[in-house]
Amino acid sequence: MTVRIQTEDFDAGFEISQLHKNRKDIGAVVSFIGLVRDMNDGDAVSQLTLEHYPGMTEKSLAMIINQGKTRWNIADALIIHRVGTLQPNDQIVLVAVSGAHRGEAFAACEFMMDYLKTEAPFWKKEATLQGEHWVEAKSTDDAARARWDTGK
């Protein structure tokens, strides 16, 4: 398992290749990359600043991966999340899951991303023409996460 919080960008291709390096039992790697958009709720976004809770963030992400590993038969997973100041089009997050088959890897990757959105202690602040403001949590993210409560 790999969990990293960093200000610098990441090379998704390299990171994903590490998940199946020297392994002949991996048949599938599923990955998700989150990017900064230049538009949110109708406002033009010029910049995004991400804050987190050092110490808790790493534990929370490791717990999310472990929950995914308990629910699905997957080989390995990694989460890299950036913090600090980001611009539109910048990469924010990478979640990648490897396993023998695609079905379990797809499900585990989506589960981890839904949990990250609602559990991991990150907060976004947007800069728009109207000034800076904290991004509000979305009920659609809670709903996405709640889907997993009823089973796979």
Binding site: K117, E119, A120, F122, W123, V135, A137
Partner: peptide, 10 residues
């Protein structure tokens, strides 16, 4: 103990 708003990462 920590207090914070609902999280908005990802």
């Amino acid at each position: 103990v920590a207090f914070f708003p609902p999280v908005t990462g990802g």
